[in-house]
Write a protein that binds this DNA or RNA. Sequence first.
DNA 1: GCGATCAGTT
DNA 2: CACAACTGATCGC
Length: 468
Amino acid sequence: MSSFAGRMKEYPTVSLDRFDRENLLSRAYFLSHCHKDHMKGLKGPILKRKLEFSRTVRLYCSFVTKELLLSNPKYAFWEEYIVPLELESPTQISLVDETSGEKEDLVVTLLTAGHCPGSVMFLFEGSQGNVLYTGDFRLAAGDASRIEHLHSGSRVKDIQSIYLDSTFYDPRFYKIPTREVCLNGILELVGNWISQSPYHVVWLNCKAAYGYEYLFTNLGEEFNTQIHVRSLAMFKKMPEILSYVTTDRRTQIHACRHPKDEEFFQGSRLPCGCTASDGTPLRIISIKPSTMWFGERMRKTNVIIKTGASSYRACFSFHSSYSELKDFLSYLRPVNIYPSVIPIGRTLTEVTQIPQKTADEGETPDNDENFSLTLSASLSNHSSQNLDSCLPDTLILQPEQGGREQGDKRPSTVAQEESNDQKELSESQVSSDYDIPCTPESKTPRPDELSQLYRKLASGEDVIRKRD
DNA sequence: GCGATCAGTT
DNA sequence: CACAACTGATCGC
């Protein structure tokens, strides 16, 4: 789960993967991929209202992410405000303060992230240096060296900060078999089963999320078949996926789902029924893709585990392993690293916090969403050493002063972001509605209304309707 | 009735 | 087995 609050220290007037709270004030939005935990606030009525008034605020994402997003009617209102960008195409974006007219230019480049269809990393280049926001990603060791726009000639660009998918930043997850190794294990298991008879079928027990599509296309290609899924609508403009999926259940490979499938369909059942169209009972095995990891010295890395008479787990990961993350970081050598998630299992060591906001500086929302911390604030000072030794083994959140009660399940540590010029909104304010001026006859705001709206948004005053 | 949030589950 | 999303309870409007 991403716990990133939405803004980067270097370019605080843009928001990424978060669209609520203070992100409502941003001049531009970026969506790295279409998973719901990166879309918080994206269907919010306040944001919708803001877009209707704005001439310059847009959402930037890949073409595929745009398609996936708009395939959900709840996000349809974004259509005219999305600017899809090609991968590997540096694009200049003007960040305009619509109140003052103040303008800042930023160049953004989308880099493939390998997490799910359409997933990208954002490389920002501007007055505050080069910053890489990875979103969620899975890249193999050595991949960073093959990304052109991380280089300038033959040299790696100077990276001020990386906002990192730190899901597996823990030595416990040292090694995760590569995509290819995992895929080959699954291909072999599926092939051995479905070749026995037309009534031998497999059910891929996938979570309801994008990211398994390359599994479907590879299986479809290998066995010259299609995979049964619940809906094709989201892929209708993606022929290379669409051609490998079907809603016709007469196929030997299924990834269909049913709301109650976990309870009833484990092992030897199928969400779409357990008999063939001629009435013959199907012979079903289930394969659950899930993350498997191995220690540094672990030799045996079996990517398929039998979990029952007719059920298996197969290795599959949406995120880079520890060693892949270390490889990525030691290649790019950023000055700062900001982890995007609370580490799983924390037994760890060093960490450097960015300066904390003091408790008496106005209202600080009491939540765990604004945390942000940095490891090794000065990696660049260690240039003569092996950088790997400068990277902390693990990440840990530092205890907050006057910490929480024991038994509180939330992270016991919250590092606040540095205060920006923009005023933070308190929790109660955020849940209220903005009282946005509007011309009754038309959606078009009068010029003074627009300027008034943004002045109010910027000041945090009067915009919030008071509740009693 | 809708949406947000939380705890629990897979 | 560790991720992302669904379910159901609860609360507020």
